[in-house]
Amino acid sequence: MQDAEARSLGRIARLRAGNDVLDSFLSTPRVVIAAAVALLMILTAVLAPLIAPHDPFDMAAISLLDSELPPAFLEGGDARFLLGTDSQGRDVFSAILHGLRISLMVGVVAVLLSMALGVTVGLVSGYFGGFVDSVLMRLADVILSFPTILIALLVNGILRGVLPSTQATATAVLVLVLSIAVNEWVQYARTVRGSTMVEKGKEYVKAARLTGLPPRTILRRHVLPNILSPVLVLATINLALAILTEATLSFLGVGMPPTQPSLGTLINTGNEFLFSGIWWVVVFPALTLVVLVLSVNIVGDWLRDALNPHLR
C-alpha cells in the first residue's frame, strides 16, 4: 500500500515538474546550441566532397605556388583559400572538412563497434552470471587497469604488423577503430551488466522464462529495450572520447596517414610549422576539434541528466 501511495505522490511530483525530455531540451539554450553545432558539423562532414571548395587529395590540382598563404581575411590572403593553405599549397578549409569527415567516421564506427561488443558482453555476463561472468569481468578489469592510449598503441602496433598495406585508408581506419573499441567496450559492458542483473530479477523476465523463451530472445526482446537509456548516454559521451583518442593517435603519428588526414593528422602536420609563423595550419583544425568535442559532450551531459530518473 505504501508503495502505491509513494507512486501516486511520484505521479504528482512528475505532474508538477512536467519534465518531458523535449521540454527539458528546449528550455536549455546551451544544449540547443550545442546540438545545432554538432548537427551542422556532422552535415558538413557528410557532405564534405560536395561542399569543399577544393579537393585536397587531388595532387594534380594543388600547386606549390599557392603554399603557405594566410587566411583570406588577413593581409596577403587569397580569396580562393578561406582559411589559408599549408606548406604544400592545400586549402586548409577543405582539409578540415575532409579531416572532420574521417574523424567523425572513425568515432562513430568505433562507438558502434564498442557498443555492440560491450552490450553483448554485459548482457551475457549479467544474465548468466557465474563462471562466464567472472571471466569476462576480470578481462574488463585488466583492460581498465592499463592507460587507454597504451592499449591503443599496443593494438595499433600488433595490427599494423598483421595487416598489410597500412597506408591504405580503409586499413588505417580499421586499425584506429579497433584500437579505440578495445578500450571502450568495457564501459558499456559494466553498465549493461549492472542493469541486466537488476532487470533479470524483475518478474517480467521471470514470466518470459516461464513462457519458455530461450535466453537469446529474452535478452533481445525483454532486457535490452529496458537497459538502453544509459547506453545511449554513454555512447554520446564516448563519441567525443573516441574522436579525441583518434586525434591523439593520429597526432602521435600512428593514425591516419598525411595523405588521408583526420583532424589529428592535420594538427600533427600543422604543429611542425607553428613556429615558422603559419599558425593557421594548426589552429583551425584544433579549433574545429575543440568545438566538435565540446558540443557532443554538452549534448551527452544533458542526455545523462534528462534520462536519469533520480535527477528528474
Partner: peptide, 17 residues
C-alpha cells in the same frame, strides 16, 4: 501447461512492450 501469476503487478509486465 504450467504458468505463474506474480505478486507485483508493477514489475511483472515489460514496460517497453
Amino acid at each position: 501447461e504450467l504458468q505463474m501469476i506474480f505478486q507485483d503487478p508493477y514489475s511483472s509486465l515489460n514496460p517497453r512492450l
